[in-house]
């Protein structure tokens, strides 16, 4: 069996009649069997566009994507049997109760999903007998979650899944995802919130302005050895004082400076000792800060 569940090659999508509006450009990455893969980037970077091509909701301008080794456009309905998708938007049919929608969703798959519906909705504290249109935003989101997972899919695609969920439910949701993952499901998870990606994922692809700017292991990112420095001196610090190889996110303001640094610490310490310091801090940066330079 192919080790990659998702293979994306130079996937490009331009929108509009004249194909002028950039969606994504030459996106390529693979997601391995059993992986929890994060897909992060700011709003409008192309996360949803990529997912929507994978689901054959939109058609690529060029390039291709394969899921389970099958072409994601030509064999879309075949692939969909084993895919669970949670759209970023909440949705409902007028007048349908939660259970009606879930049964409707289950009717597309040739298996009995009723036990799973019961189990998932109990864990997420979702009342099956209410009309969906009367539910709060967070509860509608839960309907989406159960709908995406009720057929025990082999690939779970989540587009900004956590918005509107309270922290406890979010925790339950993540627990459920981890269990699915242990059972063998591969998960593709898009978000603009790094901390949730950080908690869940093995690897992440970072997308910015429609292009992939990096694919990294979360563990690698953490061991990137960047340290965050904050310095305040008695006298104004020269604007270029700390500049050099390995320095990024450099900000100075009169007597103070802050930056991130990776490399030989002694060089920085030597520079520090050349100043008359009033305060100094050396900390572990958050992933957010490491990513910041991708976003810029």
């Amino acid at each position: 069996m192919d080790a990659n569940v998702i293979e994306i090659n130079n996937l490009t999508k331009y929108y509009g009649r004249k194909k002028r509006h950039r969606g994504i450009v030459d996106v390529s990455f693979n997601v391995a069997q059993g992986e929890i893969f994060g897909f992060i980037g700011p709003n409008g970077a192309g996360k949803s566009t990529t997912m929507r091509v994978l689901l054959a909701l939109i058609f690529p301008t060029r390039g291709e994507a394969r899921i389970f080794g099958k072409d994601c456009i030509k064999e879309a309905s075949e692939i969909a049997k084993d895919v669970g998708y949670l759209p970023s938007e909440v949705f409902y049919y007028d007048g349908m109760k939660v259970i009606d929608l879930l049964r409707y969703s289950a009717s597309f798959f040739k298996k009995d999903c009723s036990a799973r519906i019961k189990e998932l909705s109990e864990r997420l504290e979702l009342d099956l007998n209410r009309k969906i249109e009367d539910l709060s935003y967070g509860n509608k989101k839960k309907v989406g979650i159960v709908q995406g997972l009720l057929h025990s899919p082999k690939l779970i695609m989540l587009d900004e899944p956590t918005g509107g969920l309270d922290p406890l439910i979010q925790q339950t949701f993540f627990d459920i995802l981890r269990e699915e993952n242990k059972k063998g499901a591969t998960i593709l998870f898009s978000s603009h919130i790094l901390s949730e990606v950080q908690k869940m994922c093995d690897r992440v692809a970072i997308i910015k302005d429609g292009k992939i700017v990096g694919v990294r292991k979360i563990s690698e990112l953490r061991n990137d050895n960047y340290k965050k420095y904050g310095v305040t001196a008695a006298n104004p610090i020269d604007a270029d004082y700390f500049k050099g190889e390995g320095v990024m996110n450099y900000v100075t303001d009169k007597n103070s400076a802050s930056f991130m640094f990776k490399g030989d610490i002694n060089g920085v310490i030597a520079k520090l000792s050349g100043l008359e310091l009033t305060d100094v801090s050396i900390e572990e940066p958050s992933l957010e800060e490491i990513f910041l330079h991708y976003y810029e």
Partner: peptide, 13 residues
């Protein structure tokens, strides 16, 4: 009703 994604991502051509 924003159900189009829901419906079209199901295993039906």
């Amino acid at each position: 009703m924003k159900t189009v994604d829901f419906l079209l991502s199901k295993p039906v051509p």
